[in-house]
Simulated assay, not measured.
Amino acid sequence: MAENSSVLTVSIVTPDGEVYSNDECSLAIVQTKAGDMGIMADHIPLIAALKIGSAKVNFNSESDVLAINGGFVEFSNNLLTIVADSAERKGDIDVARANSAKARAEENLEKANKNQDADSMNRAEVALKRAINRINIAERN
Rank of each mutant, 00 (worst) to 15 (best):
M1K: 13
A2N: 06
E3I: 03
E3N: 15
S5H: 02
V7M: 13
L8Q: 06
L8G: 02
L8K: 04
T14Y: 09
N22P: 06
E24P: 06
C25T: 08
L27E: 11
A28D: 05
Q31I: 07
K33P: 06
A34H: 10
D36R: 15
M37R: 04
A41S: 07
A41G: 14
A41T: 01
A41I: 10
D42C: 14
H43S: 13
P45V: 01
L50C: 09
I52Y: 03
G53P: 03
S54A: 14
A55T: 02
K56D: 08
K56G: 13
V57P: 13
V57R: 03
N58V: 14
F59I: 03
E62M: 10
D64P: 03
V65W: 00
L66K: 01
L66Y: 01
A67Q: 01
N69A: 12
N69H: 02
G71D: 01
F72W: 11
V73K: 00
F75L: 07
S76C: 12
S76N: 12
N77P: 09
N78F: 02
N78M: 05
V83L: 15
D85S: 03
D85G: 11
S86N: 12
A87N: 05
A87P: 11
E88Y: 07
K90V: 07
G91H: 11
G91L: 12
D92M: 10
V95S: 12
A96Q: 09
A96C: 10
A98W: 02
A98G: 06
S100H: 02
S100E: 13
R104K: 03
E110V: 09
K111T: 11
K114N: 13
V126N: 04
A127K: 08
L128Q: 08
R130F: 00
R130C: 03
I132K: 14
N133E: 07
N133K: 00
R134A: 09
I135W: 06
N141T: 13
